[in-house]
Design a protein around this nucleic acid. Structure first.
Lengths: 150, 150
DNA sequence: CCAATGTCAGCATAACTGACATCA
DNA sequence: CTGATGTCAGTTGTGCTGACATTG
């Protein structure tokens, strides 16, 4: 629970990530969706942001198309989303909420807001503001030490 | 690669975490340790910070004791660390570097410094400073929406 | 012909839970 | 007795690669 000031950045990022992710899991669990995994909730987040093409969701989450289809198919199995052909591109499909799934999608987005509000309450709006500002900078590609200049 | 300002915090944290983690992997790969996994490098980080008890490393990384022992045993198999009995507590063990492992341990710590230096070069020292400051606050437990007041 | 998308199959990583012996 | 640590065994969640058909 204590967070020493000299902790390395990678670990700090990991802690922050887990903190947010667990908060979202807690929220969904409390609202009655205890079985939703973290990968599945990430799909809801993408849909909530208007990204409805499986291959785009995969790219945004930096996973393979196969991985995202597996996750989506789990949600299809639960009856939360449906996967329908994209009329504008017969190769592609589109993920949409079912009636049953719309509520959980909204609660996912709502949960994220609550988590950020909670963080503001705990460490202050200035810190959260600074955090968001730094994280939204263009960090470029992950560090590469030498050579490998592709 | 683009980072929209309205991205949710969980995703921003995940991006930051992956950015740092991949940078460390790149560093180790470039130095000749291509086979080291992320979980394994986290163990090196812990040892580098003086945490040498498996159960403490597990707690710090928020994983189970079983998981950390599995990772440590992989490193023992490579000959990078050894797991010896703690003379002060006959239940516990202590992880120490072998001669072969000392170099990779040092390079792990060095890599983290280089990554942070790179981040400063890219987004500025002020942003990194603010980042570290916000992340080192006490965030408390992950958000829990209602009830469950254990 | 090439690129993008989805799909099927097999596999790998890395965590988990449960149960248990040992020792503080 | 209780709690902490390590260990054995089994399982799960989540991703990967390879190969392929379809379509732009």
């Amino acid at each position: 629970m204590t967070v020493p000031i000299n902790t390395n950045l990678a670990q700090l990022f990991m802690r922050a990530f887990y903190w947010a992710e667990e908060g979202l899991q807690n929220t969904l669990k409390e609202r009655g969706w205890a079985q939703i995994t973290k990968a599945q909730s990430q799909v809801f987040i993408s849909i909530g942001e208007g990204v409805t093409r499986p291959s785009e969701i995969a790219a945004r989450m930096s996973v393979t198309r196969q991985a995202i289809h597996q996750t989506i198919n789990e949600l299809v199995g639960f009856g939360y989303v449906s996967l329908e052909p994209d009329p504008s591109d017969r190769r592609a499909k589109i993920v949409t909420y079912t009636d049953k799934g719309h509520e959980i999608g909204q609660n996912t987005v709502l949960g994220l807001s609550e988590i950020e509000a909670q963080l503001i309450a705990r460490i202050g709006v200035d810190n959260v503001q600074a955090l968001r500002e730094a994280l939204c900078q263009n960090w470029g590609e992950p560090y590469v030490p030498v050579e490998m200049h592709a």
